[in-house]
Design a binder for these strands. Sequence first.
DNA 1: CTTTTTAGTTAAGCGGGCTTAACTTTATGC
DNA 2: GCATAAAGTTAAGCCCGCTTAACTAAAAAG
Lengths: 149, 149
Amino acid sequence: MPKSVQITRPLREWMDVFMHRSMRGWNQFAKSTGLSMPQLGILMQLHYKGTTGLSGISERFNISAAAASQLVEKLVQSGYLERAEDPNDRRAKNLRLTAGGAKLVSEGIQERYRWMEKLADNLNLEDNKKILEALTILTEAARKMDEKK
Amino acid sequence: MPKSVQITRPLREWMDVFMHRSMRGWNQFAKSTGLSMPQLGILMQLHYKGTTGLSGISERFNISAAAASQLVEKLVQSGYLERAEDPNDRRAKNLRLTAGGAKLVSEGIQERYRWMEKLADNLNLEDNKKILEALTILTEAARKMDEKK
DNA sequence: CTTTTTAGTTAAGCGGGCTTAACTTTATGC
DNA sequence: GCATAAAGTTAAGCCCGCTTAACTAAAAAG
C-alpha cells in the first residue's frame, strides 16, 4: 500500500507529539484535583455517557463490583457523585455527577483542549482551514470504523 | 477571533474521539505487560530521551529520588533496564533499556499507531493527502510552540 | 411461592507507589 | 584538605486500588 508509506511518518510524528503533551497534561490535572486516575476515569465516564449504575462502572473499567463500589463511595464522600436508588429496580443505584463533579470534569476537558486550540490560533487562515477539513474527515472515519466493529 | 469559532468544534470532537481510543488502548497495553503506569512511563522516557541517570527520572515524573530508585529497581529486576555506574561520576548511574525493554516499548508504541494507521488505510487517496498535509502543519506548529515557551 | 439470579455493600488482605528519614559514597567549593 | 553538596539506596509507614469471600436485598424464573 503505497499511500501508507507516505502517510505513516507524519501520522506517527503527530501522534508522538500529541500523546506526549496530552498525557502530561492529564497527569498534571489529575494531581491538581487530588483524585486518582481511576476516580477521574469514573467521573469522565459519567460525563460522556450520562447516568449509569455501578455495574456500568465495573464493566467499563474491568474491575470487580466491589472495587467499583469502593471507588464510587469515595467520590460520593467527596461530593462529586450522587448515588440514588433506581426507582425501577430497587437493587440498583443511579450514579450522577453533582454540580461540583460536573464542574471538575469540564475544567479537566477544557484544559485538555487549551493547548491544541492555542496551537490552532497560531496558524494562518489557510492552514486552519486545511486542518479543520482534515480533522473532520478523521473524526468521521473513526466513527465509521467503530461502528463496523 | 473568528477563525477559532469555526475550528473549535472539529478540534474538540477529534480530540475526544482520539483521546478516548488512545487512553483505552494504552491502559490495555499496560495491563497486558503486567507493568504499572509509572514503570511503563520510565521505559518510555528511556526510549524517547535515551540514557539518563536516576535524577532524570525523578525530575521528569516529579517524584522523590527514593521513589525513582525503587521503581527502577523493579524494572532492573524484571530485566527491562540496565543500571550501570557512570564512569564520569561514580555516584551516578546510567540507565538504559535492555533488548527486552526496547522490544516491549516498541510493541507498545506500535500498538498505539495501529488504530490510526488502519483509519488512514480506509481513506481515499485525496483525503489521505489532506490529512498528511494537515498533520505535518500541526506537528510543525507544535514544535515551534514548544520552543518558544 | 420458592428458588435462583442480579445489584450492590462490607471487610480482610495483598501489592504498589510514594514520602520522609537516615545513611553511604563520590564530587565540588573554598 | 576539609566541609558541603549531590547521587543513590534502604527502610518504615501511609494511602490506594484491587481481589476474594461472605452478606443483604430485590427481582426473575420455575
